[in-house]
Design a binder for these strands. Structure first.
Lengths: 215, 215
DNA sequence: CTGCGATTTTGAACACGTTCAAACGACGGA
DNA sequence: TCCGTCGTTTGAACGTGTTCAAAATCGCAG
């Protein structure tokens, strides 16, 4: 495993993904563009999925970088959640069109690029960490009984939002933006209301359910 | 288009899907098993996705059939929603294992088997109709201001639940059952609470958001 | 420098989904 | 009966992701 060759394959693949999209970036094209034999790409990346995962990692890094600026700036839960979600759409934006193809690959259970796969451990913990910061840094503070589970729920919400984005063919994915601007205040409001006696039962049920399902 | 040949291809494909799963059911195997030339399967079903969609339709019919018995029996929103969800998991159950592969195909935007595709109009309206009945027949009645939008939201919840099921590798998909048993009462409770002044604002926001996003 | 095992690289080969030009066949009109 | 047309059927061919035996190259012990 020479790092140089691996990196050459990786960068060539990502460039072609950007230039041609997923389907038209064949393993043969990657190898040829890099001046290598067809089989060599498979030596460093067992399947095409593994190259998609590199893209997934790249986008997540970009997202984390952009989100960090926001997270350092304070704000309430709604504002922080909303900003991080918008940053996610921004990071993905240049891939809409064939982005759909990538998410399709990523969502396949067993795929290396799946957010739940072992191979995606890095990207996943990075994403979760983002939402831990969203919650931890919120002012006013998030109610204590929600602080443990909320980050993962917000991260899952981001995955759902990405799925929506994939299907969103409105110009500039305006509907996804609208969804974010609607969901973030709603989540903020429900978190605030969860302290009230009427809703305390429901929010406890949600948390119990999350724990039960995870087990 | 002779109906006989088409049906022969269809039934052979569905049988092989059941016996071998998605990946091992090649277009060549379907044609060979049916005693036809390779290309003929493509004459009746342009892509393999279209054959998966036949399976999707089959499962939806089975689900509708099973759910109907429940829907005719009355009950409150929680019970009806819960029963219909369980019936959905039942209908899918024999496909878990390679069911994941099918849902993967179905979720791809542009795929004929996508629940949002034109080709799936039949299966989609059938599913929506189920949840219209869930809402319309609930006793006590669902608050009037929710009656219009709730069926589609419940249908979307079913899609999400199916997605969860795909990833659920617990024995017998117990975690999905747990999720259903937790989510249904929660939805029932929130619908009831939505009448209260504190939550009336939030529930109106949800409905406004749904309408805004759809537009 | 030589030899040899391990690592890296090659490119032909395989099975797949899909396409398509050609062949076939049924059926109605002359 | 023959012909022509149109719907059906055939199977070879294409490009794909992936595999793999073989070749080339490297690293290092002697």
């Amino acid at each position: 495993m020479t790092a140089d060759t691996r990196e050459l394959v990786r960068s060539t693949a990502l460039r072609l993904f950007r230039e041609r999209g997923y389907a038209k970036t064949t393993m043969r094209a990657i190898a040829q563009e890099a001046g290598l034999a067809t089989g060599l790409a498979h030596y460093y990346f067992p399947t095409k999925d593994h190259l998609v995962q590199e893209l997934y990692l790249d986008v997540n890094l970009e997202h984390a970088r952009a989100a960090q600026a926001v997270l350092d700036g304070g704000g309430d839960l709604t504002a922080r959640f909303r900003a991080v979600l918008h940053a996610s759409v921004d990071a993905f934006s240049e891939y809409h069109g064939f982005g759909a193809e990538f998410v399709t690959v990523a969502i396949r259970p067993g795929s290396a690029a799946s957010p739940f796969s072992e191979d995606s451990e890095g990207a996943r913990s990075m994403g979760l960490h983002l939402y831990e910061q969203v919650v931890a840094g919120a002012d006013p503070a998030v109610p204590a009984h929600l602080r443990a589970e909320l980050p993962e729920l917000l991260w899952l919400a981001q995955l759902g939002m990405t799925l929506f984005w994939v299907y969103d063919s409105s110009p500039g994915q305006r509907r996804t933006r609208t969804l974010i601007d609607g969901v973030a205040p709603l989540v903020g409001r429900l978190v605030r209301l969860s302290r009230l006696p009427v809703l305390r039962g429901a929010s406890d049920d949600v948390l119990a359910l999350v724990r039960a399902v995870r087990a």
